[in-house]
């Protein structure tokens, strides 16, 4: 089966890969580009561990084909920090102990970043519903929600 050539942008870098049309964007990020920050927890769009943004829109990279990335702008957890300066969410997640095992963390961070860009002052309920597609089995979500709300408050003060 012939592979398809895809040119796209990931975290600001122009990249190319060849992929089977059945491969998902997640497969391509992980196996073709060695960007293993996005995780496959389910492969059915139910856990959110593979969350990335495509042209600024939050999606599950397991629910998008690699070939669909042609000409798009993809952002993953690997692109969240600015050089050695962590994104405020990344700092707050460590500070609040908002991760235990850490497998859901990349997806949660990418999703939370998308939330705060859209809504800098979310309520607890809005935060919980926005993140409902990001399963966490360790924390009971309590510290995750607190970390996101606290980041939002801090970013509002800073701006």
């Amino acid at each position: 089966m012939s592979k398809i050539h895809v040119s796209t942008t990931v975290n600001g870098d122009a990249v190319d890969y060849l992929c089977d049309p059945r491969e998902t964007l997640l497969d391509c990020l992980r196996d073709r580009l060695n960007l293993t920050g996005a995780k496959e927890g389910c492969g059915t769009g139910d856990c959110g561990a593979c969350s990335v943004t495509v042209d600024g829109r939050l999606v599950c990279s397991c629910l998008m084909l690699g070939v669909e990335a042609e000409g798009k702008k993809i952002e993953t957890v690997e692109g969240m920090a600015d050089g050695d300066v962590l994104h405020p969410l990344q700092k707050k997640f460590i500070e609040h102990a908002a991760l235990q095992c850490g497998i859901c963390t990349p997806g949660v961070l990418v999703a939370a970043k998308a939330l705060l860009e859209k809504n800098p002052d979310p309520t607890e309920e809005e935060t919980r519903y926005w993140l409902a597609g990001n399963l966490c089995r360790c924390t009971g979500y309590d510290k995750i929600i607190r970390a996101v709300m606290d980041t939002a408050a801090e970013m509002r003060e800073a701006s």
Partner: peptide, 9 residues
């Protein structure tokens, strides 16, 4: 239908 992520697609 689905999550925020699914809504994006």
């Amino acid at each position: 239908i689905g999550s925020t992520q699914v809504q994006g697609r």
